[in-house]
Amino acid sequence: MNFTLRVWRQRNAADPGAFQEYQAKDILADMSFLEMLDEVNIDLVHKNQEPIAFESDCREGICGTCCQMIDGEAHGPETGTTVCQLFMRSFKDGETIVIEPWRARAFPIMKDLIVDRTAFDDIIAAGGFVTANVGGAQDGNNILIPKPDADTAMDAAQCIGCGACVAACPNASAMLFVAAKVSHLAHLPQGRPEKARRALAMVSKMDGLGFGNCRNHYECEAACPKEISVAHIAKMNREYGSAALLSDQDPSS
């Protein structure tokens, strides 16, 4: 298969950046999107040109590192996949593919397709954890958790922090990411005692980092490679509302 790629190239954060066209030739249909980019980069290195900078780590869809806007969709046209799990058979031979980095004020571009997602780490550091030292792993059923709660918590815990929700949101809002963690821990007995403090701290940090506001377009849910539901955003809205208005915690904590 052959493709024409229109790739965003940007030397560094200060560079204005621009699209450049590349040809991806003799690509196998069963190559992943990243393997296709590897082939293009090998070609560029042979031509003594700067390879396209993009992030990848696990290449099995669980690390959330590979983040690219492909043909206007976060992680490309397939649902519930990351870029590394997107295969070239999803594209038509001869197609032109547009590749951009995530675009959000809170995710500044570092180089080409790589953005700085430290903002997500800052939000987690603000409260996305349980403060108690829980010691070693418990025996099975030592802490009784209703199966539906465990399942809902697991659904939310699947978040890999890739930032596709922010990238796909028309307002660059991080609500789905924050909601996934708030909801995950609020559904479990280990996280419940601190749920008010956590919701307040994480939302306060998110607001301070320059993400946009949720307008319930639900683009985040459609783009999420882990298919996390916007029901978790409603859960966070409830948690935040009751924490801010009914708990003794300060909303800016």
């Binding site: 969709e73 675009r103 959000a104 796909a168 028309p170 307002n171 809002s173 320059g210 506001n213 377009h217």
Partner: peptide, 17 residues
């Protein structure tokens, strides 16, 4: 919301909006 994305995408598709 406008300030949250100062540079627009060259190509952006909507799936749920």
């Amino acid at each position: 919301n406008r300030a949250a994305r100062p540079v627009a995408y060259a190509m952006k598709k909507s799936n749920q909006q």
